[in-house]
Lab assay of single mutants.
Amino acid sequence: EVTIKANLIFANGSTQTAEFKGTFEKATSEAYAYADTLKKDNGEYTVDVADKGYTLNIKFAG
């Protein structure tokens, strides 16, 4: 089991951190699915992958 950390960075400057656990593939998939649910209210997003994929910096356009 691994932990994927998602740093969520919103257009208004606020930030939030979420963690997803499971296999690497499952946790990564859940992180992207979570970002997709936030897209409606926060706009499109870009992802900067860090720490060999264990950290995702997800920035929303607003």
Rank of each mutant, 00 (worst) to 15 (best):
A61Y: 14
G43N: 03
E30W: 09
E44W: 08
N42G: 06
G53T: 03
Y32I: 13
E44L: 15
N57W: 13
L56Y: 04
T46E: 10
E30Q: 12
A11S: 09
N57K: 09
A35T: 03
K39A: 08
G62E: 07
K21R: 12
K39M: 10
I58P: 00
I9C: 05
T17A: 11
Y45M: 03
A11R: 12
N7H: 14
A33V: 07
T23Q: 13
S29Q: 14
V47I: 09
E19G: 08
A11K: 12
I4Y: 02
D36K: 06
K39N: 03
V49Q: 08
A33T: 08
A11Y: 10
A61P: 11
Y45A: 02
G62H: 11
D51N: 10
K39R: 12
N57I: 15
F20P: 00
K52P: 03
F24K: 09
A31K: 00
Y34I: 04
N57D: 06
L56V: 05
G22A: 07
F24N: 03
I58E: 00
I9L: 14
Y45R: 01
K26Q: 14
G43P: 01
K5I: 14
E1L: 06
N7Q: 10
I9G: 05
G13F: 08
A18W: 14
D36Y: 05
D51Q: 05
E30L: 11
N42S: 10
L56M: 07
K40N: 08
G22N: 05
T17D: 07
L8R: 00
T17Y: 15
S14M: 13
A50S: 13
Y45S: 01
G43E: 04
D51W: 03
A18K: 12
F60V: 01
L8P: 00
L38F: 15
A27M: 02
E1Q: 08
T55N: 05
D41H: 13
L56E: 00
N7Y: 13
F20I: 03
A18N: 14
K5Y: 14
E19T: 13
K26A: 15
E44C: 06
L8M: 12
N7G: 02
T23W: 06
L8K: 00
F24H: 09
F10K: 04
V2Y: 09
Y32M: 12
A61E: 07
K52I: 08
I9A: 09
A18Y: 14
Y34H: 09
S29L: 13
A50E: 13
F20E: 00
E1R: 03
V47H: 03
Y34G: 01
E30G: 07
N7V: 14
G53L: 03
K21A: 10
F10Q: 03
T55G: 03
Y45Q: 01
A35P: 01
K52G: 12
E19C: 06
E25T: 09
T23V: 15
A33P: 00
K5V: 13
Y54C: 04
A18V: 14
K40R: 09
T55E: 07
K52Q: 13
A50V: 09
E30H: 11
A18C: 05
A31P: 01
A61R: 11
F24C: 04
F20W: 07
A61M: 12
A35K: 00
T15L: 15
E44A: 10
T55D: 02
T23S: 15
F10I: 04
S29W: 10
N7C: 05
A61V: 09
D36C: 06
A61S: 11
G62Q: 09
N12P: 04
E44R: 09
V49G: 04
D36P: 01
E25M: 08
Y32Q: 04
D36H: 07
A35C: 04
G43Y: 03
A11M: 09
S14T: 12
A61H: 15
T55L: 12
A35M: 10
F60Q: 01
D51E: 11
Y34F: 12
F24M: 14
F10D: 02
G13K: 13
N7M: 11
D41M: 13
T55I: 12
T46I: 14
Y54I: 05
D51I: 02
K21P: 04
G13M: 11
V47Y: 04
L38A: 04
K5L: 15
I9Q: 10
Q16D: 15
E19W: 15
T46N: 08
V47K: 03
N57S: 08
K59I: 13
F20K: 01
T15E: 07
D41P: 05
A31I: 14
